[in-house]
Simulated assay, not measured.
Amino acid sequence: MPAQIYALDISGRRTRPADPLSGHRQESWRVNLLNNNDVLLTQLVGVVGGEFTFNVNAAIRGSGSIEYSGTPLDWNQHRVQPIYRTEAGGAAVEWPLGVFLVATPSSEYKDGDRTVSLEMYDKTKILEDDLIPASYQVAKGSNVITAVRAVLALSGQTRTAFEESTQTLATAMVWPAGTSRLRIINDLLESVNYFSIWVDGDGVFRTSPYLSPADRGMSWEFEDNEKSIYSPEFTHDFDTFDVPNRVIVTGQSDGDTAAPVAVAEDNGTGPFSIATRGRVISRYEEGQEASSQATLQAIAERLLQTGQQVGSTFSIQHAPIPIDLNSVVAFRRGVEAIDVATTLQTISYSMDTGALCSTTLREFIQ
Rank of each mutant, 00 (worst) to 15 (best):
M1E: 06
A3H: 14
Q4G: 06
A7Y: 09
A7H: 12
L8H: 14
D9R: 00
S11F: 01
R13Q: 13
A18N: 02
L21S: 11
S22K: 13
R25K: 12
R25F: 02
Q26W: 03
W29S: 02
R30C: 06
R30V: 07
V31A: 07
N36W: 00
N37H: 12
D38E: 09
D38P: 00
L41N: 00
Q43T: 15
L44I: 06
L44G: 04
G50V: 10
G50W: 10
F52C: 01
N55V: 12
N57E: 13
G64W: 05
Y68V: 08
Y68D: 04
S69I: 01
D74F: 07
Q77R: 15
V80D: 11
Y84E: 08
Y84P: 05
V93P: 04
G98V: 09
G98R: 12
L101Q: 10
A103M: 09
A103F: 02
D111K: 10
T115I: 13
K125D: 11
I132F: 01
I132G: 00
P133K: 06
Q137M: 15
A139I: 08
G141S: 12
S142T: 13
S142G: 12
N143D: 14
L152R: 02
S155L: 03
T158A: 01
R159W: 02
T160W: 00
E164L: 06
T166A: 14
T168V: 15
L169K: 13
M173Q: 15
V174K: 11
A177D: 05
T179D: 04
R183D: 12
E190R: 12
I197G: 00
I197N: 01
W198I: 02
V199M: 00
G201W: 06
V204D: 01
T207P: 00
S208V: 05
F222Y: 15
N225S: 13
N225K: 11
K227T: 12
I229C: 03
Y230N: 08
Y230W: 13
F234G: 07
F238H: 14
T240G: 10
D242Y: 11
V243M: 06
P244K: 11
N245G: 12
R246G: 03
V247N: 12
V249G: 01
T250H: 04
G251A: 09
Q252G: 00
T257K: 12
A258D: 15
P260G: 07
V263P: 03
E265C: 05
D266Q: 07
T269L: 05
S273P: 05
A275Y: 03
A275Q: 10
S282R: 11
Y284W: 03
E286D: 13
E286I: 13
Q293P: 04
L296G: 06
L296I: 08
Q297L: 14
Q297W: 02
Q297M: 07
A300C: 05
E301S: 13
L303T: 04
Q305S: 14
G307E: 08
Q308E: 08
V310T: 14
V310N: 11
G311E: 11
S315K: 15
P320H: 02
I321D: 04
P322D: 09
L325F: 04
V328D: 03
V329R: 07
R332W: 00
A337C: 07
I338R: 03
V340C: 03
A341F: 13
Y349Q: 08
D352G: 10
T353F: 04
T353G: 01
T353L: 06
T353V: 07
A355V: 04
T359H: 04
L361W: 08
L361V: 09
I365A: 01
I365M: 04
Q366N: 14
Q366F: 03
